[in-house]
Structures are given as structure tokens and as C-alpha cells.
């Protein structure tokens, strides 16, 4: 896959950081504002898709990136399960129990473990979508050779 024109590359350089930070904001404020892990994870993967589309497939070592994204996805889903099991062992003895203090409604640090679940799901969704996209790009590169 070829890269695009210098205008597209420059605009990508300018915009990409803001989209990434906005994705992190959507994930971490998921318990206060609309959004959450699913939407923020899609934003994070969209950043990397934009990077690969505008700079071409030579900018990154795609195969290594794909392996790493797959590993990160596995680690994130493991973290999600681990939090649920910790909720089972500590406190109320309920699977998916909320074992941290709830705090004040509307504060950033509140709602117990829900922000941690949001972060785990956000990383998982982002890594999954990025893995699917990179697998397609690698496949198209290989059959075009």
C-alpha cells in the first residue's frame, strides 16, 4: 500500500495526537459522560488505521505490530477477568463485585472498579479492531507480491 500526498501526511501528523487524547478522555470519563470503553477503544484503533492509511505500509513493521496488538488484546481480556475474580474473592463474594469505595457521584475518581473495567475493555476493543485491520493489510500486501 502506497502512502498518500504530503498534505494528507502533514494533516495526519497534526490531528493524530488530538484524536488519541480524545479517545483516552472518552475511556476515562466513561462513567460520567456518554462514551466508555467501547467508543474510546474504537477511537484508539481509528488513530492507528489513519496512520497506516496515510503513510503507507512501509512506515511500520506490520507483522510485529499485529503480533503485539494481538498480545495486548489477550492481556486486556485477562485483566478484565482478573478484576472480576478479585471481586469474587474480596468483599461481597459476588462475581463482578464492586470492591473499591464508591466515592461521590460525579467525581472523576468514583464508581469503584468501573473505570478500571472501562480501561480494560477500551484497550481490548482497540487492539482487536487494529488486529483485524492489520491482518487485512498484510494479506493484501502478500497477495500483491
Amino acid at each position: 500500500m502506497q502512502g498518500m500526498s504530503p498534505i494528507v501526511k502533514k494533516v495526519t501528523q497534526l490531528v493524530m495526537g488530538f484524536i488519541f487524547v480524545y479517545g483516552i478522555y472518552v475511556i476515562t470519563h466513561g462513567h460520567l459522560t456518554p462514551g466508555g470503553g467501547f467508543a474510546g477503544g474504537a477511537f484508539l484503533s481509528g488513530t492507528f488505521i489513519l496512520l497506516v492509511l496515510s503513510f503507507g505500509s512501509n512506515i511500520l513493521n506490520l507483522r510485529r505490530e499485529e503480533e503485539e496488538a494481538s498480545e495486548i488484546e489477550g492481556l486486556a481480556i485477562f485483566t478484565f477477568l482478573l478484576l472480576a475474580v478479585v471481586g469474587f474473592l474480596i468483599g461481597m463474594r459476588v462475581f463482578f463485585g464492586n470492591f473499591l469505595p464508591k466515592g461521590q457521584i460525579g467525581e472523576l475518581i468514583s464508581a469503584g472498579v468501573i473505570p478500571l473495567y472501562n480501561i480494560a475493555v477500551g484497550v481490548e476493543v482497540g487492539a482487536a479492531l487494529l488486529t483485524i485491520f492489520l491482518a487485512l493489510v498484510i494479506y493484501k500486501e502478500e497477495i500483491s507480491k
Binding site: G30, H31, L32, T33, P34, G36, F96, N98, K102, G103, I105, G106, S110, A111, G112, V113, I114, Y117, N118, V121
Partner: peptide, 12 residues
């Protein structure tokens, strides 16, 4: 749940 967004509270 302590979560202001009810959808997130139900979901997790």
C-alpha cells in the same frame, strides 16, 4: 454503582 452514566453502570 456510583456511576453517573447509567448505561456504563448497567454494562459493568
Amino acid at each position: 454503582t456510583g456511576s453517573a452514566n447509567l448505561v456504563t453502570g448497567i454494562l459493568f
